[in-house]
Design a protein around this nucleic acid. Structure first.
Lengths: 295, 295
DNA sequence: GAGCTGCACATTATCGACAAAGAACACGGA
DNA sequence: TCCGTGTTCTTTGTCGATAATGTGCAGCTC
């Protein structure tokens, strides 16, 4: 199979939610921007919807015939791209399963295990190598360097360097920069989650990602911004499978975030630096602690 | 053609230089480590040498029959790997040819132009993307972000952050660390080139690379060390095609390096930082200047 | 018994092929 | 005149196949 039609399936599912019985779907170009795909894909979706009796389609008119049912949706697992699947499987292996540093990684074996071609695995590994967890021996295998305490230290060292710089840049942003609006909206989101922390503490991850990305953005430096991808993927997968003390940890972090946000709003460099250092050292500490319980 | 035998050809050429008439080549495993290839490749080389009448091969004896001639060598251009070729062609295009930011990069076109399969080009682009000069639109083309003044500034900003940290770590290295020996040998190499600067100023690039890599190494941080690859490739190609004032620029830089090395040897943090800053700001300036003459 | 060779096998690098997804163009209706 | 549609063409993502290269094992030689 040359290419997965996951783009189609995912867009189809999202398009199902746009159906309102009695109304007509918007024009093709409009659907394109709504769904974020090309017209070719939109037209495939419309054709499929005609087949399923969901709509009648004649030129400009796309009249909705019936509401979508559970069965109209494609199964969720068919909607994620190949590389996402590979990423998940791979991360699971190296963060959970026994993944001693120095272990060899075999493209062919990985491909067979996941049930995809070698090319996809290869390209994934190349992309993934920039995260510093694996390394290639040319004409030979990849070597796993391991998600070790050492790795976590190197990662957080750079993170702190970068974020201090970004935070300082953020504080220096002109008053009419849209980032301030976004910051305020993030602050409110934090307060909301905090108010119901016992049942919503898992939403912290997303807040964390948004806040830190917003701050890195202020650096205006693509290397700093790109580096955050490494942080994000590591934290994402690590905490996804390691939820010990998550409730307590996240509650504390939200409070730190709020302090951090307040400090940014004062635009006083010393206040920003202090809050930034405090939060980062606390994040480092949680990561290190959770590492010792695993490895 | 499934795979280029460039490893074979390159190793063969290097092996030719080991031939001494009347003597025998060493054992297969020894040749392996000498040439940095596997036994399979060594045996292919030996077979080929038998075919060419260069040696007689019987088990452990590999008696050299005649000295290699010019014609025995494979042409140089056949000895570099596919990805090196792609890299060179690509860098030439984006650093020399009109490469306006925002331009689209077409995998297929690139592949045809270079005369390789799309897979190789694709993998190269993925690897190359970490340098921040291109960016992928999924399911669509790559976008060239351009080797602009902006890029150079972002690059050098991070470089300065990292190198200051590395230099400080270097100064703190224990007295018996092998890096000190290497540093001294590098210092002597600088002095030698400086003594004959008019004819040897082109050797500066290599000295530069060695010195900075040695310093980054001291950070013990893979992200810092890996980042230097970006610096290296940019400087390598940029100055390779832009030799204006090279003689003067390199002479000045060598003097700065010598100061920098002396400062490191004092192991006094302030002296190290001062010399480091001085050299880096001068390097930044040359890069910016050479950029304005080009773009 | 330590290291070398001979051999068989495993894995990587590269290609061409093909379906999915994107992009360009001309026509036609408001 | 402008936007939407119908159509066609280009490019990407993924696969299986194949030569180059690397790796492991058994027996041989010093």
């Amino acid at each position: 199979m040359p290419k997965q039609n996951t783009v189609f399936k995912d867009a189809y599912n999202r398009c199902l939610r746009l159906l309102v019985v009695g109304e007509s779907l918007p024009s093709e170009p409009e659907l394109c921007s709504l769904l974020g795909v090309s017209r070719t894909t939109v037209r495939s979706i419309l054709s499929q919807m005609v087949e399923s009796g969901l709509i009648e389609w004649n030129k400009r008119s796309k009249a909705v015939q019936r509401p979508p049912s559970r069965a109209d949706y494609f199964p969720e697992h068919e909607t994620s791209s190949l590389s996402d699947m590979i990423e998940r499987t791979f991360m699971k292996r190296i963060l959970m399963g026994g993944a001693e540093p120095g272990m060899q990684i075999n493209e062919l074996e990985l491909a067979r295990e996941i049930g995809v071609g070698t090319t996809s695995v290869r390209e994934f590994l190349i992309r993934f190598s920039r995260f510093g967890l694996i390394e290639k021996r040319p004409n030979s295998h990849w070597v796993l360097k391991g998600f070790t305490r050492q790795f976590a230290e190197e990662l957080t060292d750079v993170r702190e360097m970068f974020e201090l710089k970004s935070a300082a840049a953020f504080a220096g942003l002109p008053a009419d920069d849209p980032a301030w609006v976004e910051l305020e909206s993030l602050r409110r989101a934090h307060v909301e989650v905090l108010a119901d922390i016992d049942s919503r503490y898992l939403e912290f991850s997303e807040l964390d990602d948004r806040l830190h990305r917003l701050i890195q953005q202020a650096s205006g430096n693509r290397f700093i911004i790109d580096f955050y991808d490494i942080i994000a993927i590591v934290f994402h997968y690590h905490y996804q499978w390691n939820k010990a003390n998550a409730r307590e940890r996240n509650g504390k972090a939200i409070l730190e975030h709020l302090d951090y946000i307040e400090a940014l709003k004062t635009r006083r460099p010393e206040a920003v630096e202090a809050a930034c250092r405090l939060h980062l050292s606390s994040a480092r500490q949680s990561l290190m602690q959770s590492l010792s319980t695993v490895a």
